[in-house]
């Protein structure tokens, strides 16, 4: 049976492999929600291919807008796949750190009562 350290390292390696493959292999087609938006806006048939020039109309009036530092899991065109890999690696480790950080934080906050 794997010890904790091996299990965490193996798990993170598997996650990084999946994310790394995703950078090169992920489909560029719109996801289910975006596809549905294109269908209801009459730019795409329900079962047909998505036209190259299809674009979702977004009504931003009175809505919040936010620019993230790494939109669409990339660092922009100039960095290409490398930027995608960096984004995935940063995101994977950040997910682990945030989850473990909060978990430990909760445990520490709960300790004094003992």
């Amino acid at each position: 049976m794997m010890d904790n350290k091996t299990f965490i390292i193996a798990g993170i390696i598997v996650a990084l492999l999946i994310g790394g493959i995703a950078v090169f292999m992920a489909s560029g087609d719109p996801d289910g929600l975006e596809s549905t938006a294109l269908v209801v806006q009459g730019q795409k048939d329900l079962t047909g291919a998505t036209p190259e020039d299809a674009e979702i109309h977004e009504d931003l009036t009175g809505k919040f807008s936010y620019s993230s530092p790494m939109p669409d899991y990339s660092l922009g065109e100039s960095f290409g796949s490398l930027g995608g890999l960096i984004a995935i690696i940063v995101g994977t480790f950040l997910a682990v750190i945030v989850v473990l950080g909060l978990a430990y934080g909760i445990k520490l906050a709960g300790k004094p009562t003992k």
Binding site: I8, I12, A15, G19, A22, S27, G91, A95, V99, L100
Partner: peptide
């Protein structure tokens, strides 16, 4: 929990 966080983040980035 840590491995699931990493795995779920990675899986969600993979558009099939």
């Amino acid at each position: 929990v840590a491995v699931l966080a990493a795995g779920i983040f990675a899986l969600q980035s993979f558009n099939l």
